[in-house]
Design a protein around this nucleic acid. Structure first.
Length: 282
DNA sequence: CTGTGTTCCTGTTCGC
DNA sequence: TGCGAACAGGAACACA
């Protein structure tokens, strides 16, 4: 099973698309349906055609394609979205095998680029999204995002402040994209385990009476950065196929924290599965 | 306002 | 072996 797209997966896609699209123009844009999660914006294909790709960036789980006229293509992978990059001429010549045709049944958007590459967005569950925006931070979904977890802006003070008056569980807070951008269900559990913090702990307790972040808050920030960085590195090295998570999908197994004799449990929190060790996570 | 629950969607897994 | 039910969850929205 490929993990759901969270920040590391989206970053991997960004790098892939950067290599495939930067400098090239949209020669042809094909929409195989009129919507994904939301309808495509008006004249979507027309507004892309002829534009060159200046650069590809990422904000949280959103991909941003900066276009030559200055506007931006905003994309989200949802839960099952991904991109395929192929040589356009080989694609034309190809006769599809039955299983391949089955796989292509969820190809919703096709970008034929001037470079001779075709970039296809495929998404079985159609939770993905594509939109156009004037600037990189003018899109409503992106404007409300919290700090990038791997930036300097994301530190213990910033996290403690963002959580200060929130009476929600820590795990739920990490999933809130306005508190910190890019963390999903898997890495929320992973980071809390590495930081040895209980997912049930009230988020506001990261902030001490003295107005300073508690030690756990600093550990959590470090753990989030470590978990995300490791996942990005792992993907680049292609070793991620054999890698496993610390707690995610490990219920019933022994806790990996050195010296801890606990067992990983799976519990239900705000409609989501949370994996944790009740012995070392406090 | 704030937090919880539901909805969208389909491929995969599980139990009978 | 086959079939239906349960499950997976990002983000938006309804609602108390």
């Amino acid at each position: 099973m490929t993990p759901m797209p969270e920040l590391p997966e989206v970053e991997h896609v960004r790098r892939m698309l950067h290599a495939a699209m930067t400098g090239a123009r949209f020669t042809r844009v094909v929409l195989n349906r009129k919507d994904l999660r939301h309808p495509f914006p008006r004249r979507f294909a027309d507004r892309l055609r002829g534009q060159a790709v200046r650069r590809l960036s990422r904000r949280g789980k959103y991909l941003l394609v900066e276009l030559s006229r200055g506007d931006h293509l905003v994309m989200h992978l949802g839960m099952t979205g991904w991109f395929r990059v192929e040589q356009t001429n080989r694609l034309r010549a190809k006769r599809l095998m039955a299983d391949e045709a089955l796989e292509r049944r969820h190809d919703h958007v096709i970008f034929v680029m001037s470079s001779g590459l075709t970039v296809t967005f495929t998404d079985p569950r159609r939770f993905g999204m594509m939109d156009l925006a004037a600037g990189h931070d003018t899109h409503s979904s992106i404007a409300t995002l919290g700090p990038e977890p791997l930036s300097r802006d994301f530190n213990a003070r910033a996290l403690a402040t963002a959580c200060a008056k929130r009476r929600i569980a820590l795990k739920v807070a990490l999933l809130d994209q306005s508190i910190v951008a890019g963390i999903g269900n898997i890495y929320a559990s992973e980071a809390l385990h590495l930081a040895r913090l209980s997912p049930f702990r009230n988020a506001s307790t990261l902030f001490a009476q003295s107005g300073r972040p508690r030690p756990g808050c600093k550990r959590l920030v470090a753990a989030i950065k470590a978990v995300l960085r490791r996942a990005i590195t792992l993907k680049e090295s292609e070793r991620y196929r054999e890698s496993r998570f610390r707690v995610y999908d490990r219920d019933g197994e022994a806790c990996l924290t050195p010296g801890c004799r606990g067992t990983i449990e799976r519990v239900w929190q705000a409609g989501r599965a949370t994996y944790y060790c009740r012995v070392c996570q406090r």
